[in-house]
Structures are given as C-alpha cells and as structure tokens.
Design a protein around this nucleic acid. Structure first.
Lengths: 347, 347
DNA sequence: ATCGGAATCGCATACGTTTGCGAATATTTG
DNA sequence: CAAATATTCGCAAACGTATGCGATTCCGAT
C-alpha cells in the first residue's frame, strides 16, 4: 500500500543534502555537525517522518517480529499466555504474529514454514496434541532460528523451554485429595503425546506411593482430547464400577467439569461422595457449582518469561553473533482450593 | 537475522544468467524460454528457494499483513473472532499481527500508530471501552488505510463495519423473559461509550413497550465495566428494593453470572423467583448452575466476515487504485435458551 | 604560505526483488 | 539474401535505509 509517507530522501532533497547525512543526523552520528542535525531533526519533526520499517528490516536482516504457534487461541490458558507475550514483546519493540495449529500436526508444519518465510526473528511454540515427530522443527532449528517452547515443549538440547512444574502440581493436588480423606482416587489422563500428560500422571502416582495407597489401573482413564465430553464419558465409566472412586484428579479443567456434571446428575454429592480437582484453573472454574479446586498455572507469567527469554536470545545472537545456550525455566504452580474438594472444610 | 537463505542471485550465478531472468522464469513470464524456465525451476526446487518476503514487501509497498486491535485477548468472544480472522487471513496469504488495547484509549492510540508504522495493508479494529474521541483513527483513515471495525464500531461513513444485530438480540431476549411471565425486568447496562450498550438497552426498552410494560428507571442498573463483581453489586442493589425484579437481562454474561451468584446466595431460586438472561454466550455459560440463557453472537463468523471484507478492500484498492466504498454487514444473533430463564418449561 | 589533521559530508553499494526498456540473437518473410 | 519480426535475455533503476570509505572544507600550527 502506498501511503506517500515522507522518506529520508524527501528530507535530504528539501535540505539540499544527501540521504546518508540525513540518516546519520537522525541517529546522532558524531560525524554530523550540530547545525545539520538540528535542521534535519526539525524538518523530520515537522513532516512527521517515520522510518519505513520494511526497508529497515531488509537492510538489517531483522524484522523485529516474533512468531507464535499455539494449539488454539480460544482456550483460556493460551490466550493468557499470549497476553503475557504481547506485554513484553511490545515494550521491547517487537511485533507478534500469531498462528494456531488447531491441534493439527499438518497445520503446525505449514505454520512454522510460513513464519520462517516471513523472516521472524524467533519463534515461541507450544506443540499440537498430534505432534510426535519433530523433523519440521529440527530443520528450522538447524538454520539457527531462535526458538522457545512453552508448556507443551519439545525436549531437545537445542532449544529453550519454559514449563510449569506439572509433576509437583499434580502431586500436590493428589496429596490434597488424600488429606481430605480420599483413598480411591481416579485420574483422568490427557493426550498421550504430551509431556505434560506424563508429568501429571507421574505426580499423581508419586503421591499415591508416598502415602502407601495402591495404584489401581482401572481408576486411570484416558481422555486423549481432554474435552468436557470425554470427562463425562470417563465419569460414567468410573461410576459404573463396583467400587467407584471417592476422588478424581483430572489432567485439565474441562474434563473435570464434564465429570462433575455426570456425578451431580447421578445424585452423588461433590465433594462429599466424590471430591474433584482439575488442572489449569480456567477462568470459569471458580464459577462452577461447587467451585472447582484446580492447579493454577501462571499463564501470563509464562508468556512473559518465554518472550523475555526469546528476545534475549535474539539479541545475543545478533550482537555477539553467537548461538546462545538454551535455558530451561520451571514455573511454580499453585493449588487453588475450592469447595469441589473440601470434604473436611478449610484447615 | 541472517539465515543464509538462497536468493534469486544465487540461482542466477549458478546458472550463469541474470537475476531478472530468474525472477521472470519463476513467475512464468512469457519472455523466457521453456528451457531456461525448466532449469531455473529445477534449481530453485533443489536449493529450496523461498522468496524473501521482506524484500517483496519493500518492492511492492505491500506487506500482506493485517493488523488487529482488540480490547483484550483473554475474552471468549474476542478470541473466537480472532480465530475467524486467522482462518480467512491465512488462506488468503496474509499474516495477522495482533495487539490489544487492554480497554485503554492511550494504548489504542499507540497500537494504531505502531501498526501503521509496520505498514500493515489494513486494520481490523474493535474499540476500547474508553474510546469516545476519534482523531487518532481519523488521521490514519485519512491516509487511505483500509479499515474494518467489528462489534464495537466507529460509526463513520469512511470505514466498513461489521456488527451483530444487538437491538434485535436484546429485544428477543427481553421478549423471552416476558413470555416466561416476567413483568418486572431489570437490565444490567454496559459501558456507556459503546454503541452496543445503547443498542442492547434500546432492544430491552422496545420489548417492554411493545408489551405495554412500564419502564422502571430503578431497574436499569449501570455496569460500566461489565465484570462479575459489578454484576454482584447490581444484584445486591436490585434485591434490596421494596419490589425486586422477577427477571434480569444483562448486557453480558459475566455480569449475569455475578448476579446469579448473589441471587442464589440470598436463597432465591433461579429461574423461579428471578429469571436471568445474558449476552454473548460465553463458553462457560452452559456450565453454570443453572445453565445460563444467553444471546449467542457468531464470533467466528464475525471474524471471517471482517477479514474477508478487509482483504477485499485491500485488493480493490491496490489493483484498481480506487477507494472502495465502505460496507456494513449485520450478523444475526441467536437466543440460546437454557434453564436460567425457563419458568414454564420449554414450549 | 604550507601542511596536517579534524570536522563534515557525499558516493557507492548493499539488502532481495521486480520491471520498463533496449539489446542481442534467432526466426520468418518477401 | 536482406530485411523485418519474434524470441530471449540483461541492464538499470527502483523500493527506503544504513554504512565503509573517500572527498572536501576549514582550522590552527608551523
């Protein structure tokens, strides 16, 4: 689009000097006399000169843009993360291009290529549910594009990652159920490809072991999509057992919610008969009836940290021309106790 | 960032021809012989040539990028709209840069400038709650940047808008309450600057008049932020009245939700004592207890339509070099009836 | 008056691509 | 066989900016 914006050449012509001088004057280069600088700056101000970012990007081989790939935007946790990313990116002078994989590996591949072709300075990625091979990522990584993975991470020594302590969070949640007197605790397990799924399962198992509770395989139900619907199905299955559970720890909030609905409809009471704990602390969790206990993930902070890390890597790479060593950052979770799990009342 | 991507020059050098020939060969220009085209295309394929989008943007004064300004991402409706925008933008070959105003006029101003400086080809904007003056928009509009406003629109003859039929939606919602037997219907009113607030109020009033119900000013309570907290306060105020309402139509779902909590805590029953209807049909509305009746806004579709309209305008402007005439598109709402308003049971 | 150096600035080139125009070669025509 | 035309390609400039290097000017010192 041609907006007839004033350029450095216009200023040069008007002042009868060369574009190079104008360029230098604008960046306060010592070679330029104070008078020229003054004249240039005043005219630039008067004409409302704004540097052409596209030309700058071409010249410097740097777009000041970071690309983001997330599974889906319409997801409380991820939109919170984006908010955090925006927050630091904008104050650092970076634009943010957002793409969503829609949980599809195919789409993730085209997204990553599109971002690379757009010459973004770096990428922030959270893997799709389907992603179990990584050539598409490795090939871009090999070209030296800085990348930071968050939440659903690719475990490679070549890229930075930022995660929450899913294991501890899950363990704490399970321990909380045990403290409330639960002895038969079910687990709604998440998408099998994701590391977070394994971590949360692991935390659940560790808590059981530390309390000398038996691990009952039938009580671990897979919810590969983690939807409300799957939560309902899982709960129906659990309630049909000879000995139903007295507590449920779900890999995420929607599944927990689905389970809650089925439990309530069956006439059982939450938390008296079955206590429920979710994961992620979605916006609406506090609005449920009863309000859902959940493990809070600091999404905004995760976005901030991921963006900070990426930008630092970008700047290191461009200034010192050195590949920065990847870092891993683990954020703490926080168990938010609400009525869905309080059999005994608050301590 | 220098990724040492192969350029048109590399291909030219390797083949002993000029860059211009390579360029033309790649775009199937008739001036180039079939043999040269074949050679070029094969080598390009082999070297995995990808055109440098930044150089292209500079050359063509077109970035194939559209900028989006929304009040906040962490908002079910807006994230849904974004999803719709992405959907059509990507298949049309456009990148999407997203910024959020955080409901601040100041931030909206800097966002719009930043997007302009990034030379986006067009903008999709939903106004902040604070926006009541429009110079910052007019000045950009005057430069000929295509703009489409959605949902919270700027009513000007110079830009296209895409909205939902808030008036009809509100009227239908209120009529529904009347049909359920409500005679004292309260309205939780939204942010005063927004057109949608006025439209929804208007629809509420029209429904009352058509049914010969009196307009009782005390029953119209302002919720300038539209938060859950404000909904609670409003409900407390309403319940303290000598004659509390028997129905509530809220300008949005969170306020409706806050009201529901207060009503339930006060011992009154929903919908028996007070029926409640919200607006926007947030994701969690169906999960409330009782599930909340709400006016569904087609967010995804709105995003799609807005992006389509904008892209069409961009292409018209660049090809025919003519300012396209602004259009307005109105999308239909849909009342989703749930138990929070069903005093009589489904018809 | 001459020189040296500092101060100030412009030329040329680069980033990667597109495109009008002209040049060279090949082909057809009379 | 010469001339006209068609085919195929390269040169150069352009988009807007940054920067190494050389050129010019000016000043004070000798």
């Amino acid at each position: 689009m041609k907006y007839n914006q004033v350029t450095i050449k216009d200023i040069a012509r008007e002042l009868g000097i060369s574009p190079s001088t104008v360029s230098r004057a604008l960046k306060d280069h010592p070679d330029i006399s104070p008078e020229t600088k003054k004249a240039v700056n005043e005219l630039a101000e008067k004409l409302n000169y704004q540097p052409n970012i596209v030309a700058l990007s071409l010249r410097q081989s740097k777009t000041n843009t970071i690309g983001v790939i997330i599974p889906e935007i319409v997801h409380f946790f991820f939109s919170t993360v984006i908010s955090g990313i925006e927050d630091v990116a904008y104050s650092a002078g970076y634009n943010v291009i957002i793409t969503q994989s829609n949980e599809s590996l195919q789409r993730e591949k085209t997204d990553i290529k599109a971002l690379f072709n757009s010459r973004v300075d770096g990428m922030l990625i959270s893997l799709s549910r389907e992603t179990s091979s990584f050539e598409h990522i490795d090939s871009i990584l090999a070209k030296g594009v800085p990348m930071v993975f968050f939440d659903r991470v690719y475990d490679t020594p070549n890229a930075s990652t930022i995660i929450v302590d899913d294991l501890s969070g899950a363990k704490e949640a399970t321990q909380h159920l045990i403290d409330q007197g639960c002895t038969r605790i079910a687990h709604l397990e998440g998408p099998p490809n994701l590391g977070i799924t394994k971590q949360r399962l692991e935390g659940y198992l560790e808590a059981l072991k530390e309390n000398n509770l038996p691990v009952i395989p039938e009580l671990i139900v897979s919810c590969p999509l983690g939807t409300i619907e799957e939560g309902k199905l899982a709960a129906e299955k659990l309630l049909a057992m000879a000995q139903p559970p007295d507590g449920i720890f779900s890999t995420n909030d929607p599944a927990a919610m689905g389970a809650m609905q089925v439990i309530k409809d069956s006439g059982l009471k939450i938390p008296k008969d079955i206590a429920v704990v979710g994961f992620s602390n979605w916006f609406f969790s506090s609005l449920m009836d009863p309000p859902l206990t959940s493990v809070d993930q600091p999404g905004f902070e995760m976005g901030q940290e991921a963006a900070k890390l990426l930008i630092r890597q970008i700047e290191v790479k461009s200034k010192e021309n050195i590949d920065p060593t990847p870092e891993t950052k683990v954020l703490k979770t926080r168990l938010v106790v609400r009525n869905s799990s309080l059999k005994k009342g608050k301590k």
